[in-house]
């Protein structure tokens, strides 16, 4: 016998998938880009390992935001049990919340990866560039934060967390 899932809950599940899927994609691509630059730097200068890890870890945050939004959607939509299913319209809001952090995380992660890879190159050439490199690499984080905030607002005022 199949599990009965309300349409709104099913839509929220799509939102959760989009949130973690696209944010994870951006985060993964960005981290891959930064890690490729870091490996090159470490190959030439072993003392770059710590800085390389820091620049490669920056892009993890987008996946974390997406993961958090996805978990909240799954818990509060009733998919993980403990509640009634969501109405269809609220489910559509959930897709919006997922898309908000998903796409913002995708762009932010990729941008941050490119900035971080370039910063690793600058730091390995001139160690005093570390602070400036971190600042430039942190800038693309803002887009993910906007996406995360809007996702939270949608969930709060769209009746998911309310």
């Amino acid at each position: 016998m199949g599990v009965e899932i309300a349409l709104g809950t099913a839509l929220a599940a799509i939102g959760a998938g989009v949130a973690v899927g696209f944010a994870g994609l951006g985060s993964g691509l960005g981290q891959g880009i930064a890690a490729a630059g870091s490996v090159g730097a470490v190959a030439e200068d072993k003392s770059m390992f710590a800085q390389g890890i820091i620049f490669a870890a920056l892009e993890e945050t987008q996946a974390i935001y997406g993961f958090l939004v996805a978990i909240l959607l799954l818990v509060f939509s009733g998919l993980l049990g403990g509640g009634e299913g969501l109405p269809t319209t609220v489910g559509l809001v959930a897709i919006g919340a997922g898309a908000s952090i998903g796409f913002a995380g995708l762009g932010s992660g990729m941008g941050q990866g490119i900035a971080a890879a370039s910063s690793v190159g600058s730091v390995v050439e001139d160690k005093s560039m570390f602070a400036q490199g971190i600042i430039f690499s942190a800038l693309p984080e803002t887009q993910a934060i906007y996406g995360f905030l809007i996702a939270i607002l949608l969930m709060v005022f769209g009746g998911i967390l309310g």
Partner: peptide, 20 residues
């Protein structure tokens, strides 16, 4: 989004090595 990334990806490791 992935097109520019694919263009720069092969250069990232060599760039870091030559900049070192």
């Amino acid at each position: 989004a992935s097109r520019p990334v694919l263009d720069i990806y092969p250069y990232l490791n060599p760039i870091a090595r030559v900049r070192a």
